[in-house]
């Protein structure tokens, strides 16, 4: 059963007469209780995709279907009601918390909006229970965000997101600004909460190591397109797209001497000022052939549930197939 489906989503921003093609036809399905990671560097469109999934921006084209409901068909009021079921946790915990409001009131706020029938006492009890669930205490409710550590602040962000019992939570780089020792514990918390409540996660990240720990499936985005997707272990241990390989080879091991051959990409991610007319990696790719720059390359299955958008996906497997499009 899927809880959310993104169908051929495109997002074009217009800024001062210029176009930015942030997302170029992305389809993604998130199952109930599943964690789907969206991996990419800055400019890949991963955060825009997250905002589309949250219903915060309306895609230029394509549909977002949540639990059978097309978000595009909803009125403002209906959309607001649905928000309690789709929540978000941001990267910078401190910046996403109002610095003048006590922690207890921050966590209570979604309840005031979405559960107006609750009494003050009920709300208070729910907030304390939630704080305790994320590893804090009733005493923290009286503090201001700045008097908490980064890890505690992110726990508040998580408590605020799940207090309305959402079915889907978009986690936008939730652990990127945390120190490693804190990061592991926050990931544990997210995993436990998912198991208890069958929440689905869309986990947006640039860090493959973190994604390897928490996600069931992964979609690798580059320049507004998904270039590779599949079960996390399969993609991480058997990457087929040169971009995924480059990302993986950039992750350094803490084991001395354990080094992966560097897959170099030329230059840096270009500005997405037009819709792609060729493979998105064309110009940077180490295995590019002439056909790569003639048309956009779409996702094709290479194994069970493993899709890759690359004409050279088999390049290192079947030497006989080199040099020609399939």
């Amino acid at each position: 059963m899927s809880i959310m489906e993104l169908q051929d989503v495109r997002q074009v921003f217009r800024r001062g007469g210029k176009e930015v093609h942030a997302v170029n036809g992305v389809s993604l399905t998130v199952g109930k209780g599943e964690t789907v990671a969206v991996i990419g560097e800055s400019g890949s469109g991963k955060s825009t995709l997250g905002r589309v999934a949250l219903g915060l921006i309306k895609p230029t084209s394509g549909d977002v279907v949540f639990d059978g409901i097309a978000l595009g068909s909803l009125s403002k009021k209906e959309m607001r009601a649905l928000r309690s079921r789709i929540q978000v946790v941001f990267q910078e915990p401190y910046e996403s918390l109002n610095p003048r409001i006590k922690v207890g009131d921050i966590v209570a706020e979604p309840l005031i909006i979405h559960r107006p029938e609750m009494s003050r006492a009920q709300r208070r009890a729910a907030v304390i229970a939630m704080l305790e669930r994320v590893g804090l205490t009733a005493e923290h409710a009286e503090r201001l965000p700045r008097n908490l550590s980064g890890g505690q602040q992110q726990r508040i962000g998580i408590a605020r997101a799940i207090i309305t019992e959402p079915e889907l939570v978009v986690l936008d780089e939730p652990t990127s600004s945390l120190d490693v020792s804190v990061r592991a514990r926050v990931l544990d918390l997210l995993r436990d909460l998912q198991r208890e409540r069958e929440i689905s996660y869309v986990f947006i990240s640039h860090d493959l190591a973190t994604v390897g720990l928490i996600s069931d499936r992964v979609a690798v985005m580059y320049l507004g397109k998904v270039v590779e997707q599949g079960p996390t272990q399969e993609v991480l241990t058997n990457p087929r797209h040169p971009y995924t390989k480059a990302l993986l080879s950039a992750t350094l091991s803490t084991v001395v001497g354990q080094r992966r051959e560097h897959v170099p990409l030329r230059g840096e991610i270009p500005n997405p000022s037009k819709a792609p007319t060729k493979c998105v990696l064309s110009g940077r790719c180490p295995v590019e052939i002439a056909e790569c720059s003639t048309w956009p390359v779409n996702l094709l299955p290479v194994a069970d549930r493993h899709d890759v958008a690359c004409l050279r996906a088999d390049a290192d497997r079947e030497p006989a197939a080199l040099g020609g499009p399939r």
Partner: peptide, 18 residues
């Protein structure tokens, strides 16, 4: 606290290379 490099699970380090 640092997770192992995600590719470290690959049996052969040289793996399929580009």
């Amino acid at each position: 606290a640092v997770p192992p490099a995600p590719w470290a699970a690959v049996p052969s380090l040289s793996g399929p290379e580009v």
